[in-house]
């Protein structure tokens, strides 16, 4: 116990505390504060206890109904884009060149969609898919396919999914490509010597070696798609009807459109908890799936 006790070091941490307090703790506590009150404007608030939460989690109420509808939409959307973007990203990564000037060219092209601001992505597709002037929308209708994303639910969903795939598959592909590049040539040579088929090389070498980056890719894509807001907001504004109203869009409608701060606060807290819980589950499941610790010493 002859270590000198010196608490002055805490002063060095103080700025971080201050920043975190103002950027995270205070806003969240404000939301918590709103979530237990009701307001009718004029900056008048009334205590409501856990009322909003009870209503929110009960699908038979108006609030609970729209919350669960949006939640299912969100989960469906995330499932669809993961099911498309992950295999597609792996496929793209596998067919990317491994050396020469083509590598740089491909990487730049792949990175382009990632560099476009999200609202611009939405605008691009909004124009591109318009049935009257957009190349895609006009073309499809000219081919005799009935397509109108502002009026038809299926068209709207297909457009949003395709837009997300266009926007984000690059990310999965680039991550997988990095994973593939890190595999030493000896593995491929050994596989050739062992007479492995192309499919066996993929399942026994490439996929296991890509596991870590794939975990990151799935996590990132899941979180981003679960919190999607800008692109569908610009493209469809949540319509037709409520067909593409995801949780975040609904939240904004509730908070800024209807100024139901209490309901919106309760919803955003539950939304936040769902995101956290799902990420935790994902992460735990996927890290435990492949974490047999290597043991030293007791070999052969």
């Amino acid at each position: 116990m002859d270590k000198p006790v010196n608490n002055r070091a805490w002063w060095l941490v103080a700025p971080v505390f201050a920043i975190v307090a103002f950027s995270a703790i205070l806003p969240i506590m404000t939301v918590v504060n709103y979530s237990v009150q009701d307001t009718f404007g004029n900056n008048q608030f009334f205590w409501n206890g856990l009322g909003w939460f009870q209503e929110l989690l009960d699908p038979s109420t108006e609030l609970g109904g729209r919350f669960f509808d949006a939640l299912w939409r969100n989960l469906l959307f995330s499932a669809i884009i993961l099911a498309i973007e992950v295999p597609l990203g792996i496929l793209v990564a596998l067919s990317m060149p491994r050396e020469g000037w083509r590598v740089a060219a491909t990487l730049v092209i792949m990175a382009l969609p990632l560099l476009i601001p999200w609202n611009v992505v939405g605008t691009i597709w909004q124009v591109f898919a318009r049935a009257d002037i957009g190349l895609l929308g006009y073309g499809l209708n000219a081919l005799g396919i009935d397509y109108n994303y502002t009026g038809d639910t299926l068209s709207a969903w297909i457009t949003i999914v395709v837009m997300d795939v266009w926007h984000w598959t690059s990310l999965v592909a680039l991550l997988c490509y990095a994973g593939l590049k890190s595999i030493p040539d000896a593995y491929y040579q050994a596989a050739r010597i062992d007479g492995a088929s192309r499919w066996a090389v993929f399942t026994t070498i490439q996929l296991p070696k890509m596991k870590r980056v794939l975990l990151i890719a799935v996590l990132l894509r899941f979180m981003d798609s679960f919190m999607i807001y800008t692109e569908p907001f610009v493209l469809t504004g949540g319509g037709p009807g409520n067909a593409t109203t995801f949780l975040s869009i609904d939240l904004v409608k509730l908070a800024l459109g209807q100024f139901d701060l209490g309901k919106a606060a309760a919803m955003s807290l539950v939304y936040n908890l769902i995101v956290l819980a799902l990420c935790w589950v994902f992460y735990t499941v996927m890290t435990h799936a492949g974490s047999e610790r290597p043991d030293q010493g007791s070999a052969a």
């Binding site: 030493p184 050994a190 070498i205 296991p208």
Partner: peptide
């Protein structure tokens, strides 16, 4: 062939 770095199927 046995390579410089051990190659096993993980």
């Amino acid at each position: 062939q046995v390579f410089q770095f051990p190659v096993v199927y993980d």
